[in-house]
Amino acid sequence: MAPSATAPARGPWRTALADLVRDWTAVASFTVFVLVVAVCLLAPVYAHYIAHTDPFQSNISGTTVVNGKTVPLLAPTTTGLGLGVTPIGPTWDVHHYFLGADNQGRDVMARLLYGGRNSLMIGVGSALICCIVAALLGVISGYFGGVVDTVLNWFFDVIWAFPVYLLAISLSVVLLTNGLRLGPLTVGAGSLWLPVLIIAAVYVPYVARPVRGQVLALRGREFIHASIGIGGSDARILRRDVLPNVAPMVLVFLPLMAAINMLTEAALSFLSVGVQPPNASWGTIINDGLGLLYTRPVVAIAPGLMIVITAVMLNLLGDSVRSALDPKARLRGAA
């Protein structure tokens, strides 16, 4: 029987993409995530042209306009013993402290957007670095085996032995004092690259090990033996046979690690060992809101909500990518 000539063959990537586009969960989560990113990227526009505030500068003695009246950003208590001052709450006016002020008189909404930029940058950036480095190490370890595999595995075991948060906190506390100096590479103590590198480093084994396992499985496959048999160099085999088969796994890890890393950054910043003031991130804003839970809970709730939304969207996206790139999922679906 002659093969059908009606449907041209599609590569695995195009097939996966078509599946993703048809998956409403993937589309919705991706759309929400892109919206969050876009809004956060527009933080300078919001702060300068809409809200007219500087979210990094204390403005304790400042004022704003609410319902046509000028009010102080931090208002004193006038009842009882007259103790304490309370920051202004949400005005729901985009031009005047939409979500209210924090205890330094800073615009919470503007800080939320700027903080989102940093949180997303650190989350996604550290995920990228982590996945690239982990993929490299996992591939090298799995392909070459022997002493190389032993040494790298030992390295993974050492990092894996530490609870992730404990290791991240310890590294942060040490490096926050004087920064990081590795030969020509210098990262200042207050730089955003510090949390990026620390978070990327502590999660490397979590990606490298599965990649190594995949490569070990591939190493025993016939097409690899065939490539070796016809005299293919290690570089060629890695580039043309191994990496394309490992790439889908790494792609699945990417959004999942972005979500995990974002949560880790929020935790470190909440503990004051992540992003350093005056820089903001969703974690630092939650920390700022800790002292306002009783009076202005929105300061802590808003960034918390943003973290939840973004992490959930990234996890849903990761799930969808995994389903789209898993050929067995299609067979199961067909069955």
Binding site: T77, T79, G80, L81, G82, L83, T86, G291
Partner: peptide, 19 residues
């Protein structure tokens, strides 16, 4: 005392706040 509790302490718990 944290600033966000002062209002509460100075009103609801006035009798137990000694300034």
């Amino acid at each position: 005392l944290p600033a966000d509790r002062l209002g509460e302490i100075g009103t609801k718990y006035e009798s137990r706040a000694h300034v």
